[in-house]
Nucleic acid binder design. Structure first.
Lengths: 160, 160
DNA sequence: CCTAACTATTAGATGACCTAAGTATAAACC
DNA sequence: GGTTTATACTTAGGTCATCTAATAGTTAGG
């Protein structure tokens, strides 16, 4: 024990260094994307609302609990998020005939269009940033993303 | 023009594919980290508050405008964020004697301790995730982060 | 000086998030 | 079959982040 007191203040594992870099760069990327979207006035709905749209598009007839789990938020939070989407006619919410305590959520045509537009705009923003990268760099990034995805993907679910 | 109508719906550039993956994985990583922090009760202050602490630690005597620019928010937003930190005795806010419309912000000892604790906790969380990666994977990730950092770093500043 | 520019705050709004408490429906169990 | 328990969602009340618009105090320029 007493022999391992050297430089406790500066962790030097490769994983530790990589962790610092992740906590530096990953939030930066998201902030820049969000900022560019906002600057263009392309943030027509909030980020959680957008994620809810994405989930409902992929899971037509989804329940509120499904949205809540996918967003990693509590049921009341999901309820109000969906409620704003419903009030803007982007999502339809009808009671499920088989399970009448459930609601079945669907994208309205307007909701589908808005979602597609926002998503392609975000992708175009990122792609424009990537225009300044070489093909080799792009391959590096893609490979690293696969690694990160694998490491962070598990346990998508409960947030508590 | 009319000759380029093929598959407009599916962009296939390498940069486009990479952009899709970035928009998939990068938010995932951040959400997982935030969720783990919250689960451990380690989110003692909010993310913007934490970022404000980080800025003031690195720039003692910073002004409110400095915090606002670093956070990418408006002055009123920065004001309330700093205000909560001041009320919790994590940040000191005194009028700058030379420029009496400015305030000089500093970390209190408690603020410094709390910031250091939160940061190391976040790093440890990420490092634990990375424990399941090979050394080669870590090198890949680090290299990709450097690329992303370069591509997204510029234009840190104005958001509005 | 006195106005123009700048720094910070206050006021008022929307939205995300939480916990706790309700309502309604389904399942389960005597 | 009726009561109890569990499930799905909503409502109520609170904190925090965020915006724009308006305000107060300070400095600088003409």
């Amino acid at each position: 024990m007493a022999l391992r007191v050297v430089s406790r203040s500066e962790p030097s594992t490769a994983a530790d260094r990589c962790a610092r870099e992740i906590l530096e760069t990953v939030p930066l990327v998201m902030r820049v994307v969000r900022a560019e979207m906002r600057r263009q006035g392309a943030l027509v709905v909030s980020v959680p609302q957008f994620r809810a749209l994405a989930f409902v598009e992929r899971h037509p007839g989804a329940s509120l609990a499904g949205v809540a789990e996918h967003l990693g938020v509590t049921a009341p939070t999901a309820s109000t998020i969906v409620d704003r989407l419903v009030r803007r006619r982007l999502v339809g919410r009808v009671p499920d005939p088989a399970e009448r305590r459930r609601v079945a959520l669907t994208l309205t045509p307007a909701g589908g269009r808005l979602f597609a537009r926002m998503r392609s705009k975000a992708r175009r923003h990122v792609a424009m940033r990537l225009a300044g990268a070489s093909a080799a760099d792009l391959r590096k990034v893609a490979g690293a993303l696969a690694v990160l995805d694998r490491l962070f993907r598990e346990e998508t679910g409960i947030i508590g």
